[in-house]
Each structure stands twice: as structure tokens, then as C-alpha cells.
Design a protein around this nucleic acid. Structure first.
Length: 718
DNA sequence: CGATGCTGTCATTTG
DNA sequence: GGCAAATGACAGCAT
């Protein structure tokens, strides 16, 4: 007659696996007799916190993370983990997901079920899995850790029970001699993965190549299809109101007064709206250019790091067109914003070079205006550097930023802070140091509360009772720490109650009702393996003799010490009961039997030691999990840092483009203004000012100081 | 034979 | 206050 486990294994389990693979859920527990524990516990043992799980076993999680460092499959785990890292790295380069799916499908079909341990087939999930796996591992890990050494996790559709069942089936296969081939298959699969990894780089380059070409043609990250508006539309959006009639010094300019058909770059009616088209445009172009921008931004920022002496970060990302010689014959009304940098700059020269003295004055006053009057001296904003410089716009090294004044100081400070935070807050050196610290788990205290090391020279309260049991057990006392030789001597002297090695293998009771399993001898070998880092216990005739003897000696020492004591003291119930029963039941159990003082003391010590042993295992496991989580967190932070650096580079380039466009727009507007005599305004005497309510006013420069002292004048912009 | 890692145990703290 | 869990420290053992 088949045992229940074998029956379940060869019948219901396999059928359940098939159903699970087909997407049909089956709850085998519902088919079991009610007095029996759940199928999960029958196979894997109790799931309570007291369970001595095989932490060394592979905890196959979706992202590959979670394998315990003690895992015997650590090499394969690292291989798979490295591949998963490559997969995630591919996600940064936006390799089409179909390529990843193909690889994963290949893995699925290549090896056996148990060998499939790849992560989620959706690369987009990897990032989230990565961030969430750590915590989830810490919570749900208890169940997952009970998976076998090669717990499959390839299919995210499989439930945890299904995975458990698959794992159990695989372990059964190992017992039946199939595991060797399976292991070889896994090794072969690992080799295939390595080959795939070596080939994987090529698709990367192929994927990257077109991007490089495209961007190489554009030369810049500015999209070609940027929206172009007519200057009239620009002015209408800008709500240009020049107080022309109200004040002798002011001129009201309507959009029709200015150049009506000239094309201009994107502008908006407000400063904030002026930013938005650019930003949105950049966002829209990210899909195509993100890869290249990622590279470029990192290169730029690395250059920034090298050139750390640069005072204005805005200079650092000047695109090459701005740093090249610009000929006047190239000047034209730009139709596309990306050509603005080279097209409109020559138009600035009459303002920036020949009329610098007057404008320089306005730029100096602009700060006061901005801070106290709410006006922004656009002239000073647009051309401050040129006005203050020698005007050598063609020199790449001395090229000035015509729009540095546009930046609010707060914005500059913010960017500077971001830069500092990014480049100094978490330097690579620190990251490497942290990595080194994480790599060495020696002395790494990870918990929040640290109890000071107290010199413990006194005996523990629980051990104090050992003196009372000395006579009945050994010279050292029933619970005293006695060597194994002493124990064996003692056991040998016991004679009839000599130690039976098989006894220690009988374990493993359900946390629900442990006593039930003690009456099911055919389930004894199903129970949990309480040897932390050992092969599953098997019948001695299956094991090689040497291996069996060694394993048995280890079991005798580790798991059987208290068992020996208990048998020596003739404790009438099992150590599993002593350890795992709740307090109430444990006390009730003690009252049921008339135990001597020594027996009671031994029972309590066995309970204490047993619980503490599992607690120590859990503690160490948590410590390792914490280290692994920290490792993942470090990696995540590094990725986040890279992402932020890239975003910063993109923002800087976007800002540069916007400055150029505003500069161009200012120039266009100012050049079209005419006084009542039909003469153009002199940039030396007049300047456009940007008010806080979005209006633009033309003000004489000699009034700027007065405006600064009389904020009420801003109401006269009409 | 020492170094190292694993495990159990003790002492103590924490919840 | 008792209990269980957590944890640092230490010892024993195997490799």
C-alpha cells in the first residue's frame, strides 16, 4: 500500500501541477481528511515561525533575488542573478520586451520545470520587483524559503503552493534518481545562459546604433518637429502690452504692430507657460532620444565633474552650434527652434557688442527690479554676459551665456544643490565603500536596537536549577553543558534506553496538532529537515556508508543532544512537543505527568534551547536578508542616481534651449518696436521688462531705478 | 595546525 | 511580571 505522501506525490500533486500549469487552481487540502493538516504542511512541515526552514535552499523569487547565500546553488543563483541584472540593464536601453520574452521562453522550454528560475517575463516589472522584493521577501519569505533548492519561479502565474508542489516533485525526482540528470540539465542551461550572455551584447549595440545615428544627424537633442509659431502668435500669447499712450515713456504694442509673419520659436504667455512647451516637447522626444541623451548627459556631467571649477553650470552644456563661429549671412528667421542658436545670435550682436554700455547699466539694475519691483529686465536677462564681456561670442572657451540672468537665483541655487547632492552626497567612492561594507558581513550590526554587551559572569536563572538535577543525570547536571563524550558515556551506561539515531528523525509535527503526526509513522520522513545546511535525511541504506555515518553523527550531536537528555531523564513526551507547544498546552502537558524537579528543569531547558535555536536561525536569516536587502537598496540608489543625473542633463539642455528661444524672441520683439516717429527704439535707452503678471512693458532705462523705488508704477503698464 | 564558517547555546534585551 | 522573540557573544565542530 502506498503511503499517503507517495500517493499524493504521484497522483494528486502531479495532477495539480498539470492543472496549475494550465491555469486551473486546485486546492488539494480540501480533499484531505479534515483531521489531517494541510497538504503544505504534510509535505513541507509546519509553517509556523518555529519551523526550521532550509534557509540554504533556493528561495526562488520572481526577480531572482532571495536566494540565501548559503544556498548550494549559489553559483547558479549568481549566474541567474547576473543575467537578471543584465536584463534590467537592458531595460535602461529599452530593448524591446519581445527580445526578453524570447529569452525567457527559451529558458522555460530549455530546462526542466525545476530549472526555470528566471524572473518576471515583463521587464517593466523588474524595477518594481527589485524595489519591493526585499521587503516582501522579509515578510513572505517564510513560506518561500521552504521551497526546495531549486524552487521554480519562472511562471508568475503559479501560486506559491504550486511552486511548492513543483519543488516537492522535483525533490521526489531526486530521490528517484532523476535529480542528477535534472541537475545536469540545469548546468547545461547555465552554460546556455552564459553563451546567451556573450551574445546578448550584440543586440544591444544594434539597438543603440540607430539611435546614435539619428542623433548624430540632428547633432542635438532638439526634436525636429518642434512647434513653430508666428511672431504674432507669440506676441499674442505673450500678451505684450506696451504702455504707449498713457505715458510718454511707454508704448503699447499690439501684436499687429510687430512683425506679423516672422516665425519664431515656441513661446507662451507666461514664463511658466513658456517653459512648458519645451518640457513637453522634450518629454515627447524622450522615447526616441532618451538613450542618446542618457549617454550624452552622463558624458556632460562627467565633464562637469572634471571641470568642476565651472561657476555656471549652464555653460557646461552649451551645444556645439553655440560655440562655433557664426556668420552673419546665416542669419535668418528661424523656422525651427533647434536652429535658433545659430540663426538669431548674429542679430544680437548690435545689441550685445556695440551698445553694451547702456545695456550694461540695465542689467545691473535688473536685480533690484526683480526683487523689489516685480519687473524683469529682459535686456539684462538676455544679454548680461555679453554686455559685461568682451563680446567674443565666437570663442568656444569664452562663450557667454546670454540668458544666465533669466534664471532665478533660487533656480540656480536649486540646481546647484541638486548638483551638490548628486555629485557629493553619494559619491562613487562612498558607494564602493558601502559596497565593501556590505560584502563583508563581519561585525555589521544591522538592527535598530543594540543591547550592550554585558559581562555575564553569573549563571542564568534557568540554568540555576541544574544543580538540583545533578544527581539524577550527570555530574554536570541535567541541563549543564556536557560534552558529547560524556553524554555518550552516560547513554551507554543507560543500557536499555540507549540512543536510537532514527528517533531524531521523527519529527516534525504540525503546529496545529503535533500529536497527530506522531501516530502516522509513514509520514515521519516527510517532515521538516531540521539540519540547517544539510542534505535531506534519507534512509540509511540509500546513503553511502561514510556519508551516512557522518551525517548521522552530526544529527546525533546537533539534533539529538537534548533528545538524549530527554530519554535519559525518561521524559514521557517528545522534544518537539516540549519546544513547539504553546505555553498553555505546555504547562498542561507538564501537569499531566508527574515529573520530578530535574525532569521539569530539563524540559524547560529543552524548550528554551529549542526555541532559542530556531530563534537564532531566524535571526541569522534575517541578518542575511537585511544584508541582501541593503545590497539591493544600494543598487537601486545607484540606478536612481544615474537616472537623476540623466534628468539633470536633460533639464540643463532644455533650459539652455529655452534661454536661447527667449533671447531670440526678445530680440525679435524689440527690433520691431517703433516710437511715434517711426524710429526703432534704441536698446541703450529702452528695455523690455517682464512683469510678474505676465505682461511685457517697454521702459526707458532711466526709469528703471525709479520703478524699482516706486513699485506702484507697474500698474501703468497699459 | 590555524583560519574560517556554521551551528547551538547562553545571557540579555525587547515587545 | 511572565513569556516569547530577538540578538550579541561565545564555544564546539567541520572543512
Amino acid at each position: 500500500m502506498l503511503s499517503l505522501k507517495k500517493y499524493l506525490t504521484e497522483g494528486l500533486i502531479q495532477f495539480t501541477i498539470l492543472l496549475s500549469l494550465m491555469g486551473v487552481r486546485l486546492d488539494l487540502d480540501s480533499y484531505l481528511p479534515s483531521h489531517l493538516p494541510s497538504l503544505h504542511e504534510i509535505i513541507l512541515g509546519p509553517t509556523s515561525a518555529y519551523t526550521q526552514t532550509q534557509f540554504h535552499s533556493l528561495r526562488g523569487t520572481l526577480d531572482g533575488y532571495g536566494v540565501h547565500p548559503k544556498s548550494v546553488d549559489l553559483d547558479q543563483f549568481f549566474t541567474s542573478r547576473r543575467l537578471l541584472s543584465c536584463v534590467r540593464a537592458l531595460d535602461r536601453l529599452r530593448v524591446p520586451s519581445t527580445a526578453l520574452d524570447a529569452w525567457l521562453v527559451h529558458r522555460e522550454t530549455d530546462g526542466s520545470v525545476s530549472s526555470a528560475q528566471t524572473g518576471s517575463s515583463r521587464p517593466s516589472d523588474n524595477q518594481q520587483d527589485l524595489s519591493s522584493s526585499g521587503s516582501e521577501q522579509g515578510r513572505d519569505g517564510q513560506g518561500l524559503e521552504e521551497l526546495g533548492a531549486t524552487a521554480p519561479s519562472g511562471s508568475s502565474d503559479l501560486s506559491k503552493e504550486d511552486i511548492d508542489l513543483i519543488d516537492i516533485l522535483w525533490r521526489q525526482d531526486i530521490d528517484l534518481g532523476v535529480g542528477r540528470e535534472d541537475f545536469e540539465n540545469r548546468q547545461l542551461q547555465t552554460e546556455n545562459e552564459k553563451v546567451w550572455e556573450s551574445l546578448r551584447d550584440e543586440p544591444d549595440t544594434e539597438t543603440l546604433e540607430p539611435v546614435l545615428q539619428v542623433d548624430g544627424e540632428t547633432g542635438e537633442n532638439i526634436p525636429q518637429d518642434q512647434t513653430a509659431l508666428s511672431l504674432e502668435e507669440c506676441l499674442s500669447l505673450l500678451d505684450v502690452n506696451f504702455p504707449f499712450g498713457d505715458s510718454p515713456g511707454f508704448q503699447t504694442v499690439t501684436p499687429s504692430d510687430v512683425l506679423d509673419s516672422a516665425q519664431c520659436p515656441v513661446v507662451s504667455d507666461r514664463t511658466d507657460r513658456l517653459l512648458s512647451p519645451m518640457l513637453s516637447d522634450i518629454n515627447s522626444s524622450l522615447d526616441l532620444e532618451e538613450q542618446w541623451q542618457d549617454l550624452m548627459s552622463l558624458m556632460d556631467l562627467q565633464a562637469m565633474d572634471v571641470n568642476g571649477s565651472s561657476e555656471d553650470p549652464l555653460y557646461l552644456n552649451l551645444d556645439p552650434p553655440l560655440q562655433q563661429d557664426i556668420r552673419l549671412d546665416e542669419a535668418s528667421i528661424p523656422g525651427c527652434s533647434h536652429s535658433v542658436s545659430s540663426d538669431f545670435t548674429p542679430n544680437m550682436e548690435p545689441f550685445s557688442t556695440t551698445e553694451s554700455p547702456g545695456l550694461q547699466l540695465s542689467s545691473q539694475n535688473s536685480t533690484d527690479m526683480n526683487s523689489t519691483f516685480g519687473f524683469t529686465n529682459l535686456t539684462g536677462i538676455l544679454f548680461p554676459s555679453q554686455l559685461n564681456s568682451t563680446g567674443n561670442i565666437t570663442s568656444p572657451s569664452t562663450v557667454s551665456d546670454p540668458l544666465s540672468g533669466l534664471l532665478d537665483e533660487a533656480l540656480l541655487d536649486e540646481i546647484s544643490l541638486i548638483e551638490l547632492a548628486l555629485e557629493e552626497g553619494f559619491s562613487q567612492v562612498q558607494a564602493s565603500q558601502l559596497q565593501e561594507e556590505l560584502d563583508s558581513d563581519s561585525g555589521l550590526s544591522l538592527d535598530s536596537h543594540h543591547s550592550p554587551v554585558s559581562p555575564s559572569g553569573s549563571e542564568s536563572s534557568t540554568s540555576s536549577c541544574s544543580s538540583s538535577s545533578t544527581a539524577s543525570f550527570s555530574e554536570e547536571g541535567a541541563v549543564g553543558y556536557s560534552s558529547d563524550s560524556e553524554l555518550f558515556e552516560n547513554e551507554e551506561s543507560e543500557g536499555a534506553t540507549g540512543y536510537q539515531p532514527q528517533y531524531s528523525k521523527i519529527c516534525r509535527m504540525s503546529s496545529q496538532d503535533p500529536s497527530q503526526f506522531q501516530h502516522l509513522p509513514f509520514l515521519e520522513h516527510i517532515g521538516h529537515n531540521h539540519t540547517y545546511n544539510m542534505v535531506p535525511e534519507e534512509p540509511e541504506e540509500v546513503q553511502p556508508m561514510v556519508e551516512s555515518r557522518r551525517t548521522q553523527s552530526f544529527v546525533d550531536r546537533q539534533a539529538g543532544r537534548d533528545e538524549q537528555r530527554a530519554r535519559a531523564m525518561k521524559i514521557p513526551f517528545s522534544n518537539e512537543k516540549i519546544i513547539n507547544l504553546p505555553v498553555e498546552e505546555f504547562n498542561e502537558l507538564l501537569t499531566k505527568y508527574q515529573l520530578s524537579e530535574a525532569q521539569l528543569c530539563l524540559v524547560r531547558d529543552i524548550r528554551r534551547r529549542g526555541k532559542n535555536k530556531m530563534a537564532a536561525q531566524n535571526c541569522r536569516k534575517r541578518k542575511l536578508d537585511t544584508i541582501l536587502n541593503l545590497e539591493q537598496e544600494v543598487k537601486r540608489l545607484n540606478r536612481e542616481r544615474s537616472s537623476q543625473l540623466r534628468e539633470k542633463g536633460e533639464n540643463l539642455r532644455s533650459l539652455q534651449r529655452m534661454k536661447q528661444e527667449v533671447e531670440h524672441l526678445y530680440h525679435e520683439v524689440f527690433s520691431q518696436l517703433r516710437d511715434p516717429d517711426g524710429q526703432p527704439y534704441s536698446p541703450q535707452r529702452y528695455a523690455l521688462h517682464y512683469t510678474i503678471n505676465g505682461s511685457i512693458v517697454l521702459m526707458p532705462r532711466n526709469l528703471e531705478g525709479q520703478q524699482a523705488r516706486r513699485p506702484e508704477r507697474k500698474d501703468r503698464r497699459k
